[in-house]
């Protein structure tokens, strides 16, 4: 069942001619963890603020469980937002910060205290109720911000790049915490990120936004392996694009005829394969095998990048440094494009 639906949502800021968000339609399933992914200034946070009621859409509709919420003020929407900068109230203690929402709902003090204790235990911050936010680490502050939102048990939890200010290890820790909180509370969560790895790791589904438009909304595996178009593929790191056309289950291009997977689109004009999926040193007579010359080699740490020239077609390959050790620029090799790793784009 759809918990949140965006219908042709558009936002044009006053004084701007270009829409920050244009015609975005999206159905978020109840209890799911969905990522709004995209580069900076693509409209991700604007969408979140419109859902929270902090911004008014120029056109379109926002529905919670089928009912439009456009006329409801933020405090009545039951959608709580966690901001990138956590924004804890500096003059309140941790306990007061976490209990803020319940206090605004005029709950009894004893009930607030009990709920604060429970939620702080859930985010592993028990015993820190009396501390001020300035006495906490960055990770602890973000946990408090999460607890402050989760204590209200909102219908929808909106997270605006919640972990982007944290260092790598803290970010991983917080991602694990968020995943476990989601599993336990089953709250519908929509989080904004520009980090594709974070989106793939956390989300049940990813909505990719580019220049204010929704480009693909799908499970992470499909966005990664079956992108809808060249821009989506490029956003997820695809570098190999071969022009040609599909004919009878094969892709006809300057390299030759490439056998496609059975589920490949039948009318594409661009073949793509991820750099890490190209196989080096296979038998020249096997399917989809072609001769190539190594144009350059670059050590990247955990991987080595090879730039290849395959009959005039430039291809990029990513290999483990151990495998790439014996390969040098100028060496002629055989590459294979495994059938199941190929995808055809419009």
């Amino acid at each position: 069942m759809s918990d949140l639906a965006l219908e042709h949502l558009t936002k044009i800021y006053p004084g701007s001619e270009t829409p920050a968000v244009e015609g975005v339609s999206l159905n978020v399933e109840s209890g799911s963890l969905t990522a709004l992914l995209g580069p900076s200034a693509c409209g991700k946070s604007t969408i979140l603020k419109m859902i929270a009621g902090l911004l008014t859409p120029t056109s379109g509709d926002i529905r919670f469980a089928g009912s439009s919420v456009l006329k409801q003020p933020p405090q009545s929407r039951d959608a709580v937002m966690v901001f990138q900068d956590h924004l804890l109230f500096p003059y309140l203690t941790v306990g007061e910060n976490v209990g803020f929402g319940l206090k605004m709902r005029v709950q009894a003090k004893a009930k607030i205290n009990r709920a604060v204790g429970e939620i702080l235990e859930l985010v592993q911050l028990s015993g820190l109720e009396q501390r001020k936010p300035s006495e906490l680490s960055g990770g602890q502050q973000q946990r408090v911000a999460l607890a402050r939102a989760l204590i209200l048990r909102p219908r929808i939890l909106l997270l605006d790049e919640p972990f982007s200010n944290l260092d790598e290890s803290l970010r991983l820790e917080m991602q694990t915490l968020l995943k476990s909180l989601h599993a336990e509370m089953k709250t519908t969560m929509l989080f904004v990120t520009h980090d594709q790895e974070e989106a793939i790791t956390l989300a049940d589904k990813i909505a990719l936004l580019l220049s204010g438009r929704l480009r693909q909304y799908d499970i992470p595996q499909n966005l990664y392996n079956h992108p809808k178009d060249r821009e989506v593929a490029q956003f997820f790191g695809a570098r190999n694009f071969i022009s040609g056309r599909v004919e009878a289950g094969k892709f006809d291009c300057p390299l030759g005829q490439i056998v496609l997977p059975e589920n490949a689109p039948a009318d594409g004009r661009l073949l793509t394969i991820r750099p890490e999926n190209i196989v080096i040193g296979s038998n020249a007579s096997s399917d989809n095998s072609f001769p190539a010359t190594i144009a350059s080699k670059k050590f990247l740490g955990s991987q080595t990048r090879l730039e290849l020239d395959a009959t005039g077609q430039e291809l990029t390959v990513l290999l483990s440094p151990n495998i790439a050790e014996s390969l040098q620029a100028g060496t002629e090799i055989i590459i294979q494009l495994p059938r199941q790793s190929l995808w055809v784009l419009p």
Binding site: G53, P74, Q75, F83, L87, G101, M104
Partner: peptide
């Protein structure tokens, strides 16, 4: 932003003034 957080947490405009903006301005 602080007032936006407060409103998102259920504060009315008066509550976000009384409990957020005013203490910050104190």
């Amino acid at each position: 932003d602080y007032e936006a957080v407060a409103q998102s947490l259920g504060a009315s405009r008066w509550q976000s003034f009384r409990h957020v903006l005013l203490p910050l301005l104190m």
